[in-house]
C-alpha cells in the first residue's frame, strides 16, 4: 500500500483506491478463474488452491534468485517456470489422490485440506519462514499530479487481462475448450463420445493451479513470497466464485472485479478485520439464500 499524505484530497484518494482495487481485481480474477474452472468442470472444491498460489510465489522467488543478470530476466524465467512446475505438481496430486477417490466432493475437500498442509509445510521446510522479495522487472513510475504510481502494477493488470482473454478464447474457440465444456455438462456422455475424461480432469486441475501460480508470480514483486500467503487468495477466490455463482465463468470475472475494487476501497476506509468479517458473512449468507450466486445464473 502506498504511503498516503494526510493532506490528500478525496478525489485523488479515491483514484488511488480504484487503482489499487484494479490491481487486486486482476490478480484475483486469475486465481478465482482457476478455482472456478476446477469446480465447474470437475465439480470439486479445491481447498489447496491457495497453496498452489503460495507455491507459485515461492517458486518465483527461488527461480528469480537463481537467474543471474538483470531482474527482468529472472522475472521472465519465473513467469514461465513457476506456473509450469505448479501445474506439474497439481497433475501429480490429481493422479495420485483425487482420481483414486473418484472425485467424491466431500472426500476431495478433506484430501485437499491434507494437501494444503503438506504444501505449506514443504514450503516452510524447503524455503524457510522468511518473507522473500522478488525485484520488479522494471521500476518506472507514472507521475500523476498528486502521487506517483508504480508502472509495474499497471503491467500486472495488462498481463492479467491478456491471460484472461487467452483462457477465454481457449475455452470458447479451441477444441480443448470444447472438450472441457462437454465434460462439464455430462461426464458420462463425454466418455461415451470417446473423450478421455481422466485426461481432461488432470489437465483442468493443472490449468487451475497454473492460473493461481501465474497470479502469484505477478504479485510477488508487489507483495513478498511467504509460506502462509495462500490463505487470503483462497478466501477471496472462494468469495468470488460463490458470489459469481459456482461454476459460472462470466460470473466469476464480474465478481472478481466487484470484490477486488470493493476490497481496495473498503480496506481504505475500514479495518481489514472488519472487512473480512463482512466478506465471510456475505459468502455464507449468499450460499444460504442465493446459492446460484449474485451474478450469472448459469455457466
Amino acid at each position: 500500500m502506498p504511503i498516503l499524505c494526510n493532506q490528500m484530497a478525496f478525489g485523488p484518494f479515491l483514484l488511488l483506491a480504484l487503482l489499487e482495487g484494479t490491481v487486486t481485481a486482476a490478480v484475483l480474477a486469475l486465481t478465482a478463474l482457476g478455482l472456478s474452472l476446477v469446480f465447474g468442470v470437475m465439480r470439486v472444491v479445491n481447498v489447496a488452491h491457495g497453496a498452489f498460489f503460495m507455491l507459485g510465489a515461492v517458486l518465483a522467488w527461488f527461480v528469480a534468485s537463481h537467474v543471474p543478470g538483470a531482474p527482468a530476466l529472472g522475472f521472465v524465467a519465473a513467469l514461465v517456470l513457476a506456473p509450469l512446475a505448479v501445474a506439474a505438481l497439481a497433475a501429480v496430486a490429481d493422479r495420485l489422490v483425487l482420481k483414486r477417490i473418484g472425485y467424491d466432493p466431500e472426500a476431495t475437500i478433506v484430501a485437499t485440506i491434507g494437501l494444503l498442509y503438506i504444501f505449506e509445510q514443504a514450503a516452510l521446510s524447503l524455503f524457510g519462514p522468511d518473507a522473500r522479495p522478488v525485484p520488479a522487472p522494471f521500476t518506472w513510475r507514472i507521475q500523476f499530479p498528486w502521487f506517483g504510481y508504480s508502472g509495474y502494477k499497471l503491467f500486472v493488470v495488462a498481463a492479467a487481462l491478456v491471460v484472461l482473454a487467452a483462457v477465454w478464447l481457449m475455452l470458447t474457440r479451441s477444441r480443448a475448450g470444447l472438450i472441457m465444456r462437454a465434460t462439464q455438462v455430462d461426464r458420462q456422455t463425454a466418455r461415451a463420445f470417446g473423450i478421455n475424461v481422466d485426461l481432461v480432469y488432470t489437465g483442468t486441475f493443472a490449468l487451475g493451479a497454473a492460473l493461481a501460480a501465474l497470479g502469484a508470480v505477478l504479485v510477488v514483486p508487489i507483495q513478498q513470497a511467504h509460506y502462509l500467503m495462500g490463505g487470503d487468495p483462497l478466501l477471496l477466490s472462494f468469495i468470488v466464485v460463490i458470489i459469481g455463482g459456482l461454476g459460472s465463468l462470466r460470473g466469476t470475472l464480474v465478481a472478481a472485479l466487484v470484490i477486488g475494487l470493493g476490497d481496495g476501497i473498503i480496506s481504505m476506509f475500514f479495518t481489514p478485520t472488519l472487512a473480512k468479517i463482512i466478506a465471510t458473512l456475505a459468502v455464507a449468507l449468499v450460499l444460504v439464500f442465493r446459492p446460484q450466486g449474485l451474478f450469472g445464473a448459469r455457466a
Binding site: 466432493p105 475437500i109 460463490i242 473480512k276
Partner: peptide, 25 residues
Amino acid sequence: LLALRTAGVSFMIVTLMFAQAGYLL
C-alpha cells in the same frame, strides 16, 4: 438454523465461513 438450509459442499463452506467470522470477531 441457517447452514442446514444447504447440504453437502455448500454446508461445508457455510459452516467454514461462519466459524471464520467467529474467529475474526
